[in-house]
């Protein structure tokens, strides 16, 4: 019990004293995961819309694969990416291993199928009469798709939240391709693992609380956004 109380106290102390290392870690986490979610939405939303709105052979297979990716272990993604990026790997010459770019790549791979799968469900949930109305009012195919996405905006925002939740908390890939280097690739999840390993439970707990609080704030913001856009 003591741990939890002193963990809370430590969390407040770190935040209120504007501890430089803590804030570096927080902002790095947000920057990496935010960028990854942004990239993943650029890929995942169109992919979800494409699969959700068109009938073609292989549609079921793609949907199943996307859904399977919900259970994709993050360490496996990390491992694969490591093999590609390590200096003997095919992309080794890029020198990306242990950089934020490598972490963003890993997290984009993790978030894209989640955002795609949930966007797919989102666009499928739009009343077909809406689609027909748009076409009947003279919309082109692209305009119709954009209209459907707009109608599904609340569910798509939920997809982004799920994607963000997946990557901000993940640790396996971040550890393997990021390397947990202080100041450049140490993020909240990897820092917690490190501090726990060192036995500094208070600091680890404090970081855990901060991670939760950050996620809470972001979700509160998105919820508010959802409310006004609804």
């Amino acid at each position: 019990m003591d741990y939890i109380l002193s963990g809370l106290k430590e969390a407040f102390r770190l935040l209120l004293s504007f501890d430089k290392e803590t804030y570096t870690i927080i902002f790095l986490s947000l920057r990496i995961s935010g960028t990854a979610v942004l990239l993943a939405s650029c890929l995942g939303i169109p992919l979800g819309a494409l699969v959700g709105l068109h009938r073609f052979p292989g549609r079921g297979v793609i949907t199943t694969i996307l859904n399977t990716c919900f259970s994709l272990p993050t360490v496996v993604v990390g491992l694969f990416l490591y093999l590609f990026l390590s200096h003997r790997g095919p992309l080794g010459m890029l020198g990306l291993l242990y950089t934020p770019t490598a972490m963003i790549t890993a997290q984009t791979i993790l978030a894209t199928p989640i955002i795609a799968a949930l966007s797919l469900v989102a666009v499928k949930g739009v009343d077909p009469a809406i689609t027909k109305s748009a076409i009947s009012l003279g919309a082109t195919r692209i305009q119709t798709t954009l209209t459907i996405l707009k109608e599904a905006r609340v569910a798509i925002l939920a997809a982004l939240i799920a994607g963000f939740g997946r990557v901000i908390t993940e640790i396996g890939a971040a550890m393997i391709v990021g390397g947990n280097i202080k100041g450049t690739t140490r993020v909240m999840s990897t820092a917690i693992a490190l501090e726990t390993g060192k036995g500094s439970f208070e600091l680890a707990l404090a970081l855990g609380i901060i991670l939760l609080a950050t996620a809470f704030l972001i979700n509160a913001g998105l919820y508010y956004l959802q409310r006004i856009r609804e």
Partner: peptide, 12 residues
């Protein structure tokens, strides 16, 4: 253009 049996208005 066609006005549908059940008016499918956009959510806006």
């Amino acid at each position: 253009t066609l006005v549908f049996q059940k008016p499918a208005l956009f959510n806006t």
